[in-house]
Design a binder for these strands. Structure first.
Length: 443
RNA sequence: GUGGCCGUAGCUCAGCAGGUAGAGCACCGGGUUGUGGUCCCGGAUGUCGCGGGUUCGAAUCCCGUCGGUCACCCCA
């Protein structure tokens, strides 16, 4: 086969989709800055031992190797592409701690790589938009609220369906399991996280088989996982299960503060959902999952990690949240839920009557561009009908006809067919036509 | 890494009781002699994923391989 085949998991969008992606990333970026997060970009590679620290052996890391590397030289095997933005950020904080002001707040919008088997919503190369707040020694709980509000604000500004941020707290689960006497809280967490997939019976089976729970304990875990509420009402329902543990109390208090703190500012966004587990690697308290109701997939997540980074006696707790830009776009594109008014930036196509007048056409284009109007000159002096069709195919809204001889220029709105006299030094399109417009189509 | 399904035109697919390819959409040209879209007429398009085998003959059957896709695992 001579034509190349796509590489699964490495998405490449069409220009119209790329325009949508750029505008969405730009809006997220602006919102993050409105919330006072500083921009940051880290290198694509990290030392392997950094990527694999704290037992992250399950991560599918792409390893970097020089083609000319000496097979005997082990130093070349030391680099891998980062699989998220949190690990590089933790490394960055340690490396630059002396130059940063704490609490340090940053946003970071970059690709990450994972060598996993791709499927819908799972890519091997994907862009994430992260915000995190990190402090020395202690990080007040109100930052957990803050990052949710910033992410909710960013997502509310996008032409996408309303999101729901499901929130839990590790201490609630672990305290509950501990109070219950379960041997393997991590396994229990994993099992509970799968509830909506395997159902109650499957959940009990998983819990008894993998977490060493008795059937009664398993059922109690399921009961906990079934609890969700948009406000502090979940506390009573947890209490009603009759499990007592100091860690559980602490978790309930924190979760209440987060849920109420967010609800006080934005309604209908946050919901306490005690089935949320998220990754097991470093979250120690609050955990978030950004759901797109009706779309089945989480499009973001995050949480608090009391040991984001540490060096010697310095400890840096953090809390952050991540928007999965590529996944968000992927699920919305797949459902035709996003549209763009045109797949090119071009606002005006300057028609070319004949090649001899191309220099004049170029001057028209220059005049328009100088005033910020994206303009291209027709590639050929074909019949005007063809040139209009060239614009129509690309969604370019205006065709400019340079006047011949003493005649003045005219510009045609090819959507309405209206054509009028125009001067390249003064004419401007309506604001709405200046740039491609991205909109949700309710898909 | 494990398992299911699938690879035919740019796209969506048909063709598979073996007889060397077709439709729709898209594209190009013309009708419309320098102002598009509708309509009508005409046109081009493929190493049928790749390699091997069976056969007089393979898109079709068999084996292998590569790729895609879905699920598991895990997660944005």
């Amino acid at each position: 086969m001579t034509t190349p085949t796509p590489l699964s998991g490495f998405p490449e969008w069409l220009p119209g989709q790329r325009i949508i992606e750029q505008q969405i990333v730009e809006r997220i970026r602006r919102t993050f800055e409105l919330h006072g997060f500083a921009p940051l970009e880290t290198r694509a590679v990290e030392p392997l031992d950094q990527l694999l620290r704290q037992g992250e052996t399950s991560k599918e890391v792409y390893v970097l190797r020089r083609l000319q590397a000496d097979a005997e030289d082990p130093s070349d095997a030391g680099l891998g592409l980062h699989f998220d933005l949190t690990v590089p950020f933790a490394r960055y904080v340690l490396e630059h701690a002396g130059k940063l002001q704490f609490p340090f707040r940053r946003y970071q919008i970059q690709p990450a790589w994972r060598g996993e088997r791709p499927q819908e919503g799972r890519y091997r190369e994907f862009t994430q938009a992260d915000i995190d707040v990190v402090d020395r020694d202690d990080l007040p709980l109100h930052h957990d609220v803050e990052v949710v509000l910033a992410a909710a604000d960013a997502l509310a500004g996008l032409p996408v369906p309303p999101v729901r941020i499901r929130t839990n707290n590790r201490k609630v689960c672990e305290g509950f399991y501990r109070g219950l006497g379960i041997d393997d809280p991590a396994a229990a967490l994993r099992a509970v996280d799968k509830l909506d997939k395997v159902g109650p019976d499957g959940g009990v089976r998983l819990l008894t088989e993998t977490a060493g729970a008795t059937e009664a304990q398993a059922k109690a875990c399921l009961s906990l996982g079934e609890i969700n509420a948009p406000d502090a009402a979940f506390v009573e329902r947890v209490r009603a299960l009759g499990v007592n543990d100091p860690l559980l109390d602490e978790g309930l208090a924190e979760l209440t503060a987060v849920v109420e703190g967010v609800a006080a500012h934005v309604p209908d966004v946050v919901v306490a959902d005690l089935s949320i587990a998220r990754g097991l690697d470093y979250y120690t308290g609050t955990v978030f999952e950004i759901a797109l109701p009706g779309f089945g997939l989480a499009i973001g997540g995050g949480g608090r990690y009391d040991n984001l980074a540490s060096a010697g006696t310095d400890r840096y707790p953090g809390v952050g949240i991540s928007i999965g830009v590529t996944r968000l776009l992927g699920v919305l594109f797949a459902r035709d839920a996003l549209t763009v008014s045109r797949p090119v930036p071009t606002c005006v196509l300057v028609a070319v009557p004949d090649e001899a007048s191309r220099p004049g056409c170029d001057r028209v284009a220059t005049a328009l561009r100088r005033r910020g109007i994206a303009t291209e000159v027709s590639p050929s002096a074909a019949k005007f009908g063809k040139q209009i069709r060239y614009a129509d195919r690309r969604g370019i809204p205006y065709v400019w006809f340079p006047g011949a001889g003493d005649a003045g220029d005219e510009v045609k709105d090819i959507r309405s067919g209206d054509q009028m006299a125009a001067d390249a030094a003064t004419w401007s399109p309506p604001e709405a036509d200046l740039h491609p417009v991205v909109a949700g189509s309710g898909g």
